[in-house]
Computed example of a mutant assay.
Amino acid sequence: MKKTRAFLKWAGGKYSLVEEITKRLPNADTLVEPFMGAGSVFLNSNFKHYVLNDINADLINLYEELKTSPDEFILDARKLFVALNNDADAYYAYRKQFNESQDIYERAILFLYMNRHGYNGLCRYNLKGIFNVPFGKYKKPYFPEAELYFFAEKSQKATFTCQSYTDVFAKLPKNSVVYCDPPYVPLSKTASFTSYAKGGFNFDDQAQLANLAERSAFDKGTPVLISNHDTIITRKIYEKATLDTIQVKRTISPKGGSRNKVDEIMALYKGEE
């Protein structure tokens, strides 16, 4: 099966892992993703329906706009992908416009532009909620037209929500399976990567997520698969799940040479058959 790429660049994106993830997901009518990110699992799986959530309002807002009016959205977004705009001054002017804008459609278009023109495809905000990723200096940013159309078409099967993971677990549909891709436990004390959206995701959240997964699978019969770094901490937190380890190439570092292999853990919570 040909794999489909997400139209956004995304730190921690699951494109390289989709086969490993989808083969571990039990059959169900609906796939629920509390931490959707760029949507690689959604794009490369086959469920009748999807409930796709992310705490990042700009991300969900972009998906909603694309789902509702794909032709108009893609036409307008393409206009920003010209040589004139692949320039630091232009980028910072658009970034300022984005941060000052209350218009949902305008923010969605600019979010896509910044994702492709900003540094390393990062998505980062300061404590006041101001998007602050610097200019990326790419030769010619790619306009992901085919990927946008594919996403828009497939999203007709999806319901998008922007709420906390606890709220998602409180309303799981019947005959569903949950895939969780939370912000990963840091591999070192200095590697904390929590500025992805306002609020962060701390150790208590990691434990709380595991508790919700246990209750969902063992009390309600809805299976849950969680991916994370394979560490002493995650093995302890996920001790009630079936654990698998897989090796992954890390690509967050811009220096190709420092992309070493890291073990990831797949924790499957499955109730009684």
Results as ranks from 00 to 15, higher is better:
258 S>L: 14
106 E>N: 13
112 L>V: 09
214 E>P: 00
105 Y>L: 10
197 A>V: 14
201 F>L: 08
31 L>N: 00
126 N>A: 13
60 I>H: 11
132 N>A: 08
207 A>P: 00
136 G>V: 01
183 P>L: 13
235 R>K: 12
238 Y>G: 03
235 R>D: 02
258 S>R: 11
199 G>E: 13
158 A>H: 02
121 G>K: 04
133 V>K: 05
111 F>N: 02
82 V>E: 13
83 A>G: 09
170 A>S: 15
98 F>S: 06
195 S>W: 09
241 A>S: 10
166 T>M: 07
266 M>C: 15
221 G>N: 09
273 E>Y: 12
83 A>W: 02
74 I>D: 09
54 D>L: 06
27 N>V: 11
141 P>S: 07
2 K>F: 08
181 D>Q: 07
121 G>D: 07
115 N>H: 09
211 N>V: 04
225 L>A: 04
211 N>L: 08
226 I>D: 02
270 K>Q: 15
98 F>Y: 14
66 L>H: 10
103 D>L: 12
193 F>Y: 14
49 H>E: 14
149 Y>W: 12
85 N>K: 00
206 Q>P: 01
52 L>H: 08
204 D>I: 09
205 D>A: 10
160 F>N: 06
33 E>P: 05
224 V>N: 00
227 S>R: 06
58 D>R: 07
187 L>S: 03
32 V>H: 00
58 D>E: 15
188 S>R: 13
43 L>R: 10
146 A>C: 08
151 F>V: 05
8 L>R: 04
236 K>I: 08
222 T>N: 10
114 M>L: 15
252 I>Y: 12
239 E>Q: 15
258 S>C: 12
173 P>V: 10
156 Q>H: 10
158 A>M: 09
18 V>I: 15
228 N>I: 03
211 N>M: 03
9 K>P: 00
233 I>G: 02
138 Y>F: 10
120 N>I: 04
246 I>W: 02
181 D>H: 06
51 V>Y: 13
213 A>N: 00
235 R>L: 08
142 Y>I: 10
164 S>A: 10
76 D>Q: 14
48 K>T: 06
80 L>R: 03
117 H>L: 05
36 M>T: 04
272 E>Y: 13
134 P>L: 01
100 E>S: 14
213 A>G: 05
99 N>P: 06
145 E>M: 08
271 G>L: 03
139 K>H: 09
76 D>I: 11
3 K>M: 05
119 Y>C: 04
243 L>G: 03
144 P>H: 05
84 L>C: 05
256 G>S: 07
3 K>P: 02
2 K>Q: 07
87 D>I: 05
16 S>F: 03
96 K>D: 13
202 N>W: 11
217 A>C: 09
85 N>S: 07
63 Y>P: 02
96 K>N: 06
269 Y>P: 04
62 L>C: 09
156 Q>F: 02
242 T>I: 14
108 A>Y: 08
208 Q>M: 11
120 N>H: 07
198 K>G: 13
79 K>G: 02
123 C>L: 07
227 S>E: 02
112 L>A: 07
255 K>R: 14
235 R>S: 09
180 C>E: 05
216 S>G: 05
137 K>R: 15
101 S>L: 12
213 A>L: 01
216 S>H: 11
116 R>F: 04
86 N>A: 12
230 D>I: 04
29 D>H: 11
74 I>N: 11
47 F>D: 02
146 A>S: 12
87 D>L: 02
44 N>G: 07
62 L>P: 01
145 E>D: 09
